[in-house]
Amino acid sequence: MKKIIKKVLFLLVAFAVLLPSLTQAQTVVKVAVVGDSNDPIWEIVQENLGEEIQIELVSFTDGVYANRALSDGDLDLTAFQHNAFLEQETADKGYEFEVIADTYLSPMNVFSENISDLSELQDGDTILIPNNVTNRGRALKVLESAGVIKLDPDKGHLPEVIDIIENPLNLDIVETDPAIIPQALPDAAAGITNSDLAIDFGIDPVQDAIFAIEIDPEEEALQPYINIIVARAEDKDNEVYQQIVEAYQQPNVADFISEHFGNSIIPVFEGASAEG
């Protein structure tokens, strides 16, 4: 009888020890990213969160598929797109998404393996730009800022190639998958792609650019290009997701972004330091 009582007591003690871990089950949140350049940022976010919430990054080569997966419920959040991309996706597909946080602003600059300055462009040269609506429009705006082309001023931040009203060098502006533009640079005079894709290919988005726009996060024209964390509309107030936002928008994350990426990525959230 005493042996039975001892066994029961042992089991009760073991259960009491295990109970806290059983009641604090880990919550896994799937977050879509494009490429892997931002993985180090999320490592800092995970450290801020602790162990109860586990972030699982799901990498895509094209954000269009990430948004579809979010809409279908295969993901919990996305953290790759800027406001303009989300706006276009929502207009085209009727997604019911909600922005739950601003993250950073990254430049979209001009790269080349054949020329060192846009003044070296020749008549009929090829320039590669992204083939999705929002990044295509942004790339065209970059070329306009560089004085290479002039766009119809009535087209806002989403112009198309047909909206070019002046092209003195008769440049052949070719729309291409933004993910392959870095590797296609040897075959063109120049190309424009997103900073994260450039980083994934080993290109410094600022130092390696032959033309770079100065970034001011407060500039109204750049607001459509602020990167964001997005949830389904019904989940915008989800407590776990809000904890992830809080863990992201911390000074140590802003400091890490500034130290690790330099001017390639500029944190814009409230927790960012003045230096960031």
Rank of each mutant, 00 (worst) to 15 (best):
L143G: 10
I265G: 01
D187I: 01
E166P: 03
L143V: 08
F256K: 08
D39S: 14
L222E: 06
P217C: 09
A272P: 10
V240F: 03
A14T: 03
T176V: 15
L19T: 15
S273F: 00
K93T: 11
V133P: 00
H157F: 11
D92K: 13
I181E: 05
A198H: 12
F211D: 10
W42C: 03
I41Q: 02
T176H: 03
N170R: 05
L118S: 12
T61N: 15
E98D: 06
F269L: 10
D92I: 05
F10S: 08
G271F: 10
D74G: 00
K3E: 07
Q207M: 13
E234W: 03
F60T: 03
E113C: 01
S145F: 00
F97V: 04
V33D: 04
E259V: 02
Q223L: 10
N252C: 03
Q88W: 15
G271I: 13
L171A: 09
G63W: 09
Q81K: 03
G156Y: 08
A231W: 10
T193W: 02
E96I: 00
I55Y: 05
V58Y: 02
T134R: 04
V161K: 11
P178V: 04
N83L: 07
I210L: 08
S71K: 13
N167P: 06
A189F: 01
D76I: 05
I4A: 13
N67L: 15
L49V: 07
N167T: 05
L70I: 06
V148T: 14
A84E: 14
A139V: 08
E113T: 12
V34H: 01
W42L: 02
N48A: 06
Q243L: 07
S258E: 07
E246L: 02
Q46K: 08
F15Q: 00
S195F: 03
D204R: 06
D102A: 09
K6Y: 11
I181Y: 07
V33I: 15
D163H: 15
S264F: 04
F85E: 15
G124L: 07
V133S: 09
H157S: 12
E52L: 14
S112G: 09
D36W: 00
S112A: 06
Q26I: 12
Y104A: 11
Y248R: 05
L169E: 02
E219S: 12
E166F: 05
A14Y: 01
Q242C: 03
K93A: 12
F15A: 13
G147T: 08
V253P: 10
E89S: 12
A16K: 01
K141I: 14
E246S: 08
G156L: 13
E270D: 15
A91P: 00
I53R: 11
P205S: 02
L9H: 02
Q122A: 14
G202R: 07
K3G: 00
L9G: 11
N135K: 09
L105N: 07
I127Y: 06
V174P: 04
N227Y: 10
R136K: 15
E259T: 11
T193H: 05
I149L: 11
P40H: 09
G73Q: 09
D74L: 09
L143H: 10
P159Q: 08
T176P: 02
